[in-house]
Design a protein around this nucleic acid. Structure first.
Lengths: 158, 158
DNA sequence: CTTGATGCAAATGGTTTGCATGTTT
DNA sequence: AAACATGCAAACCATTTGCATCAAG
């Protein structure tokens, strides 16, 4: 499960994230801090809720799964996190400062992070042709990654 | 829940679809025919499994929901149907002859069908830059549709 | 001290599965 | 007849919710 092109958000600090929470009018609790810390520590990944809860549970054994769910929700509303649905499985989250789109290989399951200019071009096209304003970091493309397509060049139509 | 730019597959007949099933080595049953008929009658839509099952149930009261699920699965494997996940809700299906991508408006929920050339351009870019071969009809974009963006031009970041 | 956050258990919604029975080939 | 498809009930998984208790403001 490798990942390509990771970028930015190295400047994010816990305090900044916590402030965003406060600005949202939400309370700052141990559980919420724990969630945020997890995102700062596991940079670059898209942890699923389950993964996240498990990791948090190691350090704070009585933070319950449902609390993690609730907090991810609140953090999303506060604009701190973004929810992504990569494939059919459970949802995952990432810091919304770390904006990127995804391309999933349907053969090997690798998740590529798309460099911004690729989607920028698409966004331009959608805007001009349909008046549609593309939301950042909510796109998940599917297809065959470079190595898989080389390995077995013809794409199934079955 | 309006829809834009509907195209093709007006030539599809039940027999052709049934043949595809046979070619796949699957048996042709009342339930499967019923599913296929439903897709031929409700052209242009993306019925959810539930909707589909309900509609089928009207004509064949003892075709069970689980059977519809199983058959949608088989029909997908046979290459007759394509599954789409538009938004967070339940999955929906469409005839795989009716290939198109989707753009969902996050404000009003309208689902646009993208004209092929829009995604074609993106596909080209992905191929050249990343060696990624985009799969047709599996893309769901999110954003704001033309009328919603006019109504309230600034996009929430909050 | 008031309101919002949490733990826990139980409910939900979409989807899948095990098994005995019925249908297609 | 053999293999496969179906009905039904029950399991499943990710997520949500009700409620009594607890902690942040």
């Amino acid at each position: 499960m490798s990942t390509k092109t990771d970028h930015r958000h190295d400047d994010m600090t816990l305090d900044e994230l916590v402030d965003a929470l406060r600005r949202d009018g939400s309370r700052v609790t141990t559980a919420r801090r724990a969630v945020l810390e997890e995102f700062l520590h596991c940079r670059e990944q898209h942890p699923s809720v389950e993964e996240l809860a498990e990791r948090i549970h190691r350090r704070y054994p009585d933070i319950h799964l449902s609390t993690v769910y609730r907090n991810l929700g609140r953090l999303e509303e506060a604009g701190v996190l973004a929810r992504v649905r990569v494939g059919d499985g459970p949802a995952s989250y990432h810091l919304s400062t770390d904006v990127h789109d995804h391309a999933v290989c349907e053969r090997c399951g690798v998740v590529l992070h798309l460099p911004p200019q690729v989607m920028a071009e698409l966004a331009e096209l959608l805007d001009v042709e349909l008046g549609f304003v593309l939301s950042p970091s909510h796109v998940t493309l599917r297809g065959a990654c470079d190595s898989c397509r080389r390995r077995q060049p013809t794409l199934k139509t079955k």
